[in-house]
Structures are given as structure tokens and as C-alpha cells.
Amino acid sequence: MSKFKIKAFFAQLLALILAAPMIAWAGGGGGPFDAGTFSAIKVGLVVFAIFSAWLIKDKMGLPLPKLIQAPLLWIICYIGFRVILQPPIPFSLLAMYMGVCTVCIFLYCSLTRPSWEEFSHPIAVMLREDHATAKMSRYATFLIIPGLIAAQTYNQMLPKFGEPIELRTVHPAPPASINVHKKLVTLQTAENPFRIGDDGNYLKVGDEQKYFGGNAWTGDVPKFLQEVQQGGVVFFGTAGCFFCHGDNLDGKGPFSFAFNPIPANFADPGTISQLQETFVFWRVAKGGPDLSREAFPWASAMPPWEKHLTTNEIWKVIIFEYWHTGFFPRTWG
């Protein structure tokens, strides 16, 4: 193993570790790259990392010992999830991801008998042998591990002033039926009355796809798009939903960051596309004050729109939301 190879390897490694936060900063909103370029850079970085590893291992003939590979892999995973992945993920998710990585790195080191021996042999030497190097590493290990545990304990015991963690139920179960404008709406079976096709019949969920991408605001449009148009009027006019839910329905309206939690992002595949139209009807009509018992911690600034909109307006704004985002409501048919 030549000194040149070792130097080259460590230089690459260092460059990789240092580059990650810089690239993350560059794409973190105020940086010079737009989101698309930034994603391309991230993909490029991962490809480069894999290529470098292959180059170092197979071409430069520098197989890293498993005992070094393991922490190095762990650090790379950590940088990936903590720094490269933007916006930052919550700590609970990071802990889950790192838990999986930690277990799998251990499994990787013990996949076969030779790799397990390679991994465990230096540990056995460190624990058993009596020569100076073994002794020194033994002392260092027995100092570092308790030290790390002590630091972790200290950190945990430190008083924290941030808001506590909330296990918020984002999609609480709806009631079986609700009363809106003195009419009973059974949420399991009710249908949107404005889901009407060109032939005047009920438009099955999925069939509205042909109207996606069109302009609902030009002259003579089909019946369905007329309903969308009126729903849009409610969204941007009568109710002014866009102040919170945003022009693009992405939850980033001008008022949104004044709320805690911030308003729902309908453009995300995890919100309205996972729900039946009747669920959305319930949320719009009843708002935060009528959240069900399980909707802990009942944190919602959504007004009960039944007090301001007619039942028809509520159904129409729902049609508009699905049309605008290009999602379909959940059905079981």
C-alpha cells in the first residue's frame, strides 16, 4: 500500500465530507441553485461517492478494513439524512433511519464468515492482547465509550426550552355522519352532487382526468369545468382559502406561516388524495372546532365553513381542489 494511495484516498474522503454541507447550504433556499439543479447535484454526489468507493477499493487496491468501513458508512448515512436531504427531517425520523442503518451496517460486517472475522478480529486483539498498541487502544476505547455515553446523558438532562414534541393525528377518523345546514350527510356513502359529466350523469372518480390540465375559465366549458370554475371562485373569492392554503394549494399562502401547525398542503400526495371527498367535506364544513376526539391535540385554525358557505359551495370548492392538484379522491368502487 503506497503512501500516495493512502493520501489520495483520504483526500477524496475529506473532500466528500466537506462538500456535503456546502452543497446542502447552496441548495437550501437562499443558495444559487434552483431545486431541480440541486436535486441533480445531489444525485451526482451519490453517484460520485459510489464511483469513488469502487475506484478506491477495486482500482487502487485499497480495501478498507471492515472496522473502519463500519463507522465511515455510518457517518456517510448520517450526512446523507441530516445534511443532504433537504428540508431537514424531524429528529424522530432521523433516529429511525439511523437505527435501520446501524443495524444493517452491523449485518453488513457480519454477512459472511471472512467479513465477520475481519470485523471482529481487531476487536478481539484489542481486548485480549498485551502489546502496547492493544493496550493503548483498549484504554482509549474504555475512555471514549463511557465518555460518549456521559456526553449523551448530559445532553439529555440539559433543560430544553423548545416546544415539546407532538404526536399529532393529521387524519383523524371522521364520524359516521354529520349534520350540515340541517341535513344529515352520511360520510360513508354521500357523493359530491357536482361531479357531473358531459351527459349530465354522475361522473365516476377517475373519469374527470380528461378535464385535468384544461382551462376552466375560458368561455364555453363542459359542465364539470363550470363547477370547477365556481369552486375556484369560492377558493379565491368567497372564502379566500388561498390566504392559508396558497395559490398553488401547497399550504404556503401568505398567512400560512402565522399558523402553528401550518395549513394542509393539498398538492402533497399524502393529503386529499388519500381521503374520500366526504372526509374533505367534513373538514371544510366543520373545521377545527368539530375535530373528533381522537384528533389530538386538536390543533387546527380551520374555520367551520358551514357558517359562511352553502353546502353547494363546499362541494364545489372540493371539486376545484381535486381538479387543481390533479389528484383523485379515494373511493372503494
Partner: peptide, 8 residues
């Protein structure tokens, strides 16, 4: 789908 997180 539902994440555990602080408001921050």
C-alpha cells in the same frame, strides 16, 4: 405518514 416532531 404522520410524523412525530416539534412545532419548530
Amino acid at each position: 405518514h404522520t410524523l412525530v416532531m416539534t412545532p419548530a
